[in-house]
Design a protein around this nucleic acid. Structure first.
Length: 411
RNA sequence: GCCAGGGUGGGGUAGUUGGUUAUCCUAGAGGACUGUGGAUCCUCCGACCCGGGUUCGAAUCUCGGCCCUGGCCCCA
């Protein structure tokens, strides 16, 4: 039997309903903050992603050539595409731009819990605002969105300027190496690297910074930082909005183009792959031939949120089974149409079953049965049966619709 | 790419000194039952991940691959 490709998933209706529910709660939050949805191609020129992240990522992408010999890649993330789109289509749009997206991405990695080769991200990008309140807005939005999903998480906020200030004398490549050690809390490796760089005295302050959870203390450790006022303002805004976060100056985010504020979210009940959100302030547009516009954004790992949430109790609307005999079929079709026009899910037998068998099936798949046989066909009424209580009554079709509608969501 | 544990009908399972037609539950279809269902009984449907090897004979032993689960690496 054919299997689905490694690292991909099939979603049955129950799971899709749960996913759509969470997706829509996130969409609703984005809408309320003024972030409008954009969509970019599923695949892009390979170059777009290598320009952003280096040649090394080719190994971790789905790369292919099309019939014209173009080197393309399935998108491994969406930020690069959105910024390319901004340069192509929206450079002169009034700033700031507030955009969001919900889309699938592809990475060629070893699957494990919460990590798939096709996965979905819900993200936002705020383009063209370079202020403390822009940074704060994006974090507040991130928190709002995670809250709306119901996931329990820890939010960590940091700023790259502290570490960059301590490492200002090192070459970019050396900085990256040091930051990699810090990100992993590999302090032994850090000391070795610093000694080989002839900066053995840096380790104390670096380690202190990574462990530091207090802003004033961080400034003491890292020294004079030009962004100081902006950092204070950002955090004051977050505090005023009652955002729950902890400070973490060890967040490196692995990428060069992040410029300042960075933040990450972690689900509390997941294993190795527990990061459900990552973002920060960055400058990327100039890489793709645009202006040097400041941006700030984040992406939520939607699948990990779903894994973290686990089983979600469904809130389905009532389902009606219209069951009938041959004599009642004509009226039954009409009644089903009336229910559907009223927005109520209505199903009829397609298996040539008898009345008893139709009801047996309805009892498993519906909340109400509308029974229509010879008697109803002659009088133009329906028999409405509540399949949970067993109660039934004879009504005209419109009253039956009203009765079901008043019943609301099923158990 | 690395480590560990796995893979038997749609779902869940039994099944080693290798041996007849692979067990049971559930789901699905039909019937007992053509105007009132969920119970019960009966019938049907449907599986040893793939390939090589050992053997008279492999779900079982062996090798390789694929896939799943968790972890490592990575994580834009």
């Amino acid at each position: 039997m054919l299997q689905k490709p490694r690292g991909t998933r099939d979603f049955l209706p129950d799971e899709m309903e749960a996913r759509r529910m969470i997706e829509w709660s996130m969409r609703e939050v984005a809408r309320c903050w003024g972030y409008r949805e954009v969509c970019t191609p599923e695949f892009e020129d390979l170059e777009l992603f290598t320009m952003r992240s280096g040649e090394g990522i080719i190994e971790e992408m789905y790369v292919f050539s099309d019939k014209g010999g173009r080197k393309l890649a399935l998108r491994p993330e969406i930020t690069a595409s959105v910024i390319r789109m901004y340069i192509n289509e929206a450079k002169v749009a009034p700033k700031p731009l507030r955009w969001c997206y919900f889309a699938d991405c592809f990475r060629y990695e070893r699957p494990q819990k919460g990590r798939y080769r096709q996965f979905w991200q819900f993200g936002v990008e705020l383009i063209g605002a370079d202020t403390a309140r822009a940074d704060a807005e994006v974090i507040m939005l991130a928190a709002d969105m995670l809250d709306s999903s119901g996931v329990t998480y820890d939010l960590k906020v940091g700023h790259l300027s502290f570490m960059k200030n301590l490492l200002r004398d090192l070459e970019p490549q050396e900085q990256r190496k040091v930051m990699a050690h810090l990100d992993k809390k590999d302090f032994d490796g850090l000391k070795g690297t610093l000694e080989s760089l002839d900066k053995p005295d840096l380790d104390k302050s670096l380690i202190a910074l990574v462990e530091c959870r207090d802003l004033a203390e961080a400034f003491d450790i890292a020294g004079t930082i030009p962004e100081k006022d902006r950092i204070y303002q950002t955090l004051e805004t977050l505090d005023a909005a009652d955002v729950k976060y902890s400070l973490n100056f060890g967040i490196a985010r692995g990428l060069d183009y992040y410029t300042g504020m960075v933040f990450e979210g972690f689900a509390q009940n997941l294993g190795a792959e527990n990061q459900i959100l990552g973002g920060g302030a960055y400058r990327l547009a100039h890489l793709f031939g645009g202006d040097d516009v400041a941006s700030c954004g984040f992406a939520i790992g939607f699948d990990r949120v779903m894994v973290s949430l686990g089983e979600i109790p469904d809130k389905k609307d009532s389902v009606v089974a219209v069951v009938c005999t041959n004599e009642g079929r004509k009226l039954a079709l009409e009644v089903a149409r009336i229910f559907r026009k009223a927005g109520i899910q209505s199903e009829m037998d397609l298996m040539d079953r008898g009345l008893g068998a139709q009801l047996a099936h309805a009892s498993k798949s519906a909340d109400f049965a509308v029974v229509i046989g010879l008697r109803e066909a002659e009088s133009g009424t329906v028999t409405l049966k509540n399949l949970h209580s067993g109660e039934q009554k004879t009504l005209d079709p419109r009253s039956a619709v009203a009765e079901v509608a008043s019943h609301g969501a099923r158990r």
